[in-house]
């Protein structure tokens, strides 16, 4: 998102490397690099009912999720240097793969609902036309 009210902030457009992302229906409570390209991506299969893969011996079904028009996804990384914290975008995305445990996440997926919020927010904050 861009800030328009703070003129002091210098605006720069940077081209970020697009990245492929997978959102899994489980928690791995660590933050570390994982060999996705060697273990996960080559195992994805296209079946008549969508994408299929397995993780840790459990079956996953997936579908592509597109970031709503007008918005861009960023992968943000926080870095702490002494007292200061730096938050920076490392890559961008316009779609990602959403995985469900054994079934396709479908229309009721939490993330799908979350992606509807920006358009609803825009609507409720829009100026009401005066008659």
């Amino acid at each position: 998102m861009e800030s328009s009210d703070e003129d002091a902030v210098e605006e720069r457009r940077v081209q970020l490397r697009p990245v492929t992302l997978h959102l899994l229906p489980c928690d791995v409570p660590v933050n570390r690099p994982a060999p996705v390209g060697r273990f996960f991506t080559p195992a994805i299969r296209q079946s008549p009912d969508g994408l299929e893969v397995s993780f840790r011996g459990r079956s996953l079904r997936g579908e592509e999720m597109v970031v709503p028009p007008g918005l861009v996804g960023y992968v943000m990384v926080t870095e702490e240097k002494g007292e200061d914290r730096f938050i920076q975008a490392t890559s961008s995305f316009s779609s990602f793969t959403l995985w469900g445990l054994e079934t396709i996440p479908g229309p009721d997926a939490k993330v799908r609902g979350a992606l509807n919020w920006p358009s609803l927010a825009a609507a409720i904050h829009a100026k009401v036309p005066e008659d």
């Binding site: 489980c26 397995s54 840790r56």
Partner: peptide
């Protein structure tokens, strides 16, 4: 592998595989 566990050649449901994962791989909560 700490994140993915084993290649698909391994039967993850076997106790031997599970106990190695418990000690050598990250926890996963579903």
């Amino acid at each position: 592998d700490p994140v993915f566990g084993f290649p698909q050649f391994v039967r993850f449901s076997w106790r031997t595989a599970q106990s190695i994962l418990e000690t050598e791989a990250e926890d996963v909560t579903w």
